[in-house]
Write a protein that binds this DNA or RNA. Structure first.
Lengths: 236, 236
DNA sequence: CGAAGACTTGACGGCGGTCAACATTGGTGG
DNA sequence: CCACCAATGTTGACCGCCGTCAAGTCTTCG
């Protein structure tokens, strides 16, 4: 179920006609190496990207250098879709691994959406879901311990990758450095290391050679204070 | 500039026709006392509310009782607009003061929006802005100190209330209890008390008798690590 | 006026941050 | 293919911001 271009944002079952039309709007692919900045906060752009392959992340930088990672982007995720409605975005995006992007013409996509109310409505739902996701994370950062946050991140990535068939035997490629995890969860890299050490010591998860393995899903979900239904609602 | 009903969400300058049509969709007003639950997470509802007068807040409750306040709602804000697109919301809403709500028929509003692409597009922008706001707060909770968070909250409320002409002489009605501030900022009420004590000692702000006064805006913005442009972009 | 809620203040503790040294990994070029 | 160097991760010592607990004061409002 490798997602083609915008399907993820447009929703589950676009009609064949819609799919074809959107593919037609695609200007092409673009390959970028790891660590490359894909979009810089405040920039204008006449292209809109989606992530075809590889990992990336959205983040905000503060003047003094502090960084907050807002979300991790996986294959099929949109990267700069809000550019459809705004001239500038309030976050930056960076490639985590080497990535392949789908490139769309901003104006062309906007025209297409304007002309197709069904698609526009899906966009609306998409943005609303984005806000709901952010609210979920707010509760994580405001009211959860470091241990819960790390456990939850692992389970959320697991769930999202599983939908992309990128999980084998409860393990998956994991290109995040501990600094990324720290910046996403409001911690320091040193403390992330300690939490992983503890989780590993209890036999819950292992990270080695850029691969994360969930050894004891049941116990991990308990550490994350998550129920199955919480996991299932990780739709994206 | 008391906002009528949905104008806030629909945007700055709806046409007279639009305004009239939306007013026509309003089923009526509803008065609720302080502390009353307006919407409970996961409920279905055939009514959609906006806040006409008073303060409220959106929040999530965790099974063990921890609470995260997602945002404070001021007159003119929408309360449960995402119900247009979802059957259930992922947060609850509670009145902070006595409130007056505008009540809309969910299906009627949905029909109207479907029939008016211009309005639909404004909704889309509205949801996207919501997500951007949440991202902003993520950076607050993840990467700012308690002092910065409190200073920012004061300034953000100041800016939002000023647009509603609810500020006189740098002071405004302030019905929040310290527990609310704590639950919004990921702190404890005790620590919020200490931060206020410090800020007052430095002559930055005073809170007394349900009124907050900004004594030294310049210094407060410095404590908040905010620039004027940051404040201005508090659009809502 | 009484009671419940809200705020303040102090003592103490712990989660997580800081600093630093060292180990390990991985990328790069010779 | 190996050697080197930079990036990343680990570990320990120590610290401080903020949480917890509790007692006491102040507000608010019936």
């Amino acid at each position: 179920m490798r997602p083609l271009a915008l399907y993820w944002a447009i929703g589950e079952g676009p009609s064949a006609a819609t799919a074809e039309a959107i593919t037609g709007l695609k200007r092409g692919h673009r390959l970028l190496p790891a660590r490359r900045t894909i979009y810089r906060e405040g920039e204008t752009a006449d292209e809109i990207f989606t992530l075809f392959d590889g990992w990336a992340f959205r983040f905000k930088l503060m003047p003094d250098g502090r960084r907050q990672i807002l979300s991790f982007l996986l294959p099929g995720d949109t990267i700069s879709l809000p550019l459809l409605r705004f001239d500038r975005l309030h976050f930056s995006v960076q490639a985590l691994t080497a990535v392949s992007l789908c490139v769309f013409d901003r104006a062309g996509l906007a025209d297409y959406v304007s002309a197709h109310p069904t698609v526009a409505r899906r966009l609306e739902v998409f943005f609303a879901r984005d806000a709901a996701d952010a609210d979920e994370r707010l509760a994580d950062l405001g009211r959860r311990t470091a241990r819960e946050r790390v456990a939850r991140l692992a389970l959320q990535l697991f769930a999202r990758l599983r939908r992309r068939s990128a999980v084998q035997d409860s393990s998956f490629d994991f290109p995040l450095r501990q600094q990324h995890i720290a910046d996403a969860l409001g911690l320091t890299a040193v403390h992330v290391s300690r939490v992983f050490h503890a989780l590993r010591g209890e036999g819950l998860i292992v990270v080695e050679r850029n691969r994360l393995t969930i050894l004891d899903p049941r116990a991990l979900m308990k550490a994350a204070a998550m129920r199955q239904s919480d996991l299932d609602s990780e739709m994206n």
